[in-house]
């Protein structure tokens, strides 16, 4: 443990990292609502492994790691979107892509001569230094995802609920589905940089899953999911500064704890509802 003065000093150094975490948590929670409705949790995991491969490749080549991560993410997301319209096809494609991506990433890391801490952070996350130019990228991409998601919100909701009827009512299903995959790819690439490829689901799945346990309102669920995501990310970073562990165990533990509490609350309120009827 460290004393308060040092902590406050550190806080000043990582404040941008906290901002990035907050934005990611918020946007990740919103994206997660659709990940759940479209049954894409497995796809999130698959995309993150390819994103990891892209980042590791970039590290090896000495080019921008965020760019590498983005390339990997987008390739995976678009492949899954194009080839895996139906759930079963999708799962088999992801099942094939995931080990390929992880294997490739590990190969790149093994070949990379640099510091090993750098390598590890792609898998388990890192707190990014204040002056890092990456930070602007991460926040910028998250905001783009946020705006685009809001713009396609309604057609995407319709398509997630019932693609046949949505198409019959004039929703361009294929475009909407692919657009969502691209947004998912973008936000996964950001998550990989902050929380690490292995634990992306803690911000893209868990907060939305938790929110869905306690509400069925189309307004409350996205709001809760983004608050849960934001809280997990920010609190995780604040705790990580004080300790010597990587950032991700803190974030995953907090988001998991929120999920457990939501389950209990959801069960209790359902029981109350039944008793009242």
């Amino acid at each position: 443990m460290i004393d308060l003065d040092t902590y406050v000093q550190l806080l000043g150094l990582v404040q941008n990292s906290i901002i990035a975490g907050a934005v990611l948590g918020l946007v990740g929670g919103l994206v997660g609502v659709f990940v759940m409705q479209r049954d894409m949790a497995f796809a999130v995991h698959g995309i993150s492994e390819l994103s990891f491969a892209g980042a590791a490749g970039a590290l090896l080549l000495g080019v921008n790691v965020v760019a590498g991560s983005l390339v990997g993410s987008l390739i995976a997301a678009i492949l899954i979107g194009l080839l895996g319209a139906r759930a079963r096809d999708r799962n088999s494609i992801i099942g094939v892509l995931m080990p390929a991506g992880l294997g490739l990433g590990i190969l790149f890391l093994a070949l990379y001569p640099g510091r090993s801490a750098n390598k590890f952070s792609l898998l388990t996350g890192q707190i990014i230094a204040v002056d890092s130019p990456q930070l602007a990228w991460l926040v910028g991409i998250s905001l783009v995802v946020l705006v685009a998601l809001l713009l396609i919100w309604r057609p995407l909701t319709f398509d997630s609920l019932d693609p046949d009827v949505a198409a019959a009512r004039g929703v361009p299903s294929r475009f909407v589905a692919l657009a969502f995959m691209v947004l998912l790819g973008l936000i996964v690439a950001v998550s990989v940089q902050i929380i690490g490829a292995l634990l992306v689901m803690a911000l893209l799945v868990t907060p939305a899953a938790a929110a869905l346990r306690v509400s069925a309102s189309p307004v409350l669920v996205p709001m809760l999911a983004s608050v849960f995501g934001l809280f997990s990310a920010v609190a995780g970073i604040l705790l990580a500064i004080a300790g010597s562990l990587p950032i991700s165990p803190y974030i995953t533990t907090i988001s998991f704890a929120i999920y457990v509490v939501c389950r209990l609350v959801g069960r209790a309120s359902r029981r109350r509802l039944r008793a009242a009827v």
Binding site: V33, Q37, R154, P155, T157, F158, V171, L212, A216
Partner: peptide, 23 residues
């Protein structure tokens, strides 16, 4: 079960579910 939509939201999708833009 667990889909975050109320009865009125399902009907509302018929009215404006095809429209892009802020919801």
């Amino acid at each position: 079960p667990g889909t975050p939509l109320r009865a009125r939201d399902l009907v509302a999708l018929g009215v404006n579910g095809h429209r892009f833009g802020l919801p």
